[in-house]
């Protein structure tokens, strides 16, 4: 039973992966955006943002860009699923004797593969602008796994959005618009030290900040003190906890939404 559920998920993962090279624009724009961010932030803000405690802005920036970029996986997943809904594909899948989670597992896994590729491209760009890691392989690996799992969790949020809004056009804005405040009111691009007090508290507790701080810790990059709170003191542990919470909340919600989904 479990084996066949996994197989359903794999068959549908393969389906989504087959689609990627057939719509090269998707891959192109998904990759260009983070590349642009790396270069724009590194060179435009680079000199203007002092890092409390010292350190190079580019080294500070890269983990932030990683986290911000994979967060936008939400939109990719939301649009993909909304498209399947509007075309009637979801209806066909729902009429098949397959696991109720298979369509979502297939889509989110394929989007994870896409994001791992994008992380690879970003790593190259980062190395080009002067980003380096300063820890051992185990810590670097943990950082990458943490970011990859964040991308998967964000995809499941996207799955819920995609199954709820029904039209790909709405999904593309609904999947992205809330991510701007969420990723910008954090320590992703600038240290929180210069924010007004109330905003700083929000940024401190923002999960995006935890992931950025965790990645900086694990890569050995400049990591300005986030705050005296729990996420400020233990960003890595808090990030893992956030992952558990995101999966436990959003996987069942998305699957439930899928079971009830109907295109009309």
């Amino acid at each position: 039973m479990i084996a066949s559920q996994i197989q359903d998920g794999l068959v549908l993962t393969k389906r989504s992966l087959l689609r990627i090279p057939r719509v090269p624009e998707t891959l192109m724009f998904a990759t260009i955006q983070p590349i642009l961010f790396v270069f724009l932030f590194a060179y435009v803000f680079g000199g203007a943002v002092p890092i409390p405690g010292g350190g190079d802005y580019k080294e500070f920036l890269l983990p932030g860009i990683f986290v911000q970029t994979v967060s936008f996986a939400t939109a990719t997943t939301a649009v993909g699923l909304a498209e399947d809904m509007s075309k009637g594909l979801v209806d066909r899948f729902r009429s098949l004797p397959i696991a109720r989670s298979a369509v979502l597992v297939g889509r989110t896994t394929a989007d994870l593969v896409l994001n791992v590729f994008i992380m690879f491209v970003m790593t190259i760009c980062g190395l080009l602008v002067g980003w380096r890691v300063h820890t051992d392989a185990a810590h670097v690996a943990e950082a990458y796994v943490l970011i990859a799992l964040l991308s998967l969790a964000m995809s499941w949020i996207g799955a819920l959005i995609g199954m709820s809004v029904r039209s790909p056009e709405v999904a593309s804005s609904a999947g992205i618009i809330w991510l701007f405040p969420v990723t910008f009111v954090s320590n992703a691009f600038v240290p929180t030290q210069h924010m007004p007090g109330w905003l700083r508290v929000i940024a401190e507790w923002n999960p995006v900040s935890s992931f950025c701080a965790a990645a900086r810790d694990l890569f050995g990059n400049p990591n300005p003190f986030l705050g005296d709170s729990l996420p400020g003191r233990h960003p890595v542990a808090v990030s893992w906890a956030w992952l558990v919470v995101l999966f436990v909340v959003f996987v069942p919600l998305a699957v439930r939404r899928y079971r009830l989904a109907t295109s009309r």
């Binding site: 549908l12 087959l18 009637g88 594909l89 209806d91 066909r92 098949l96 004797p97």
Partner: peptide, 29 residues
């Protein structure tokens, strides 16, 4: 025990005809 086709169902437009049918076959286990 059922097959559904027409207005209520669809195939993947980005896949080939064969890829679609193999995929549905695999989903029927």
């Amino acid at each position: 025990l059922i097959g559904l086709s027409g207005q209520s169902a669809a195939v993947d437009e980005r896949l080939t005809g064969r890829e679609n049918l193999v995929m549905f076959g695999r989903l029927y286990r």
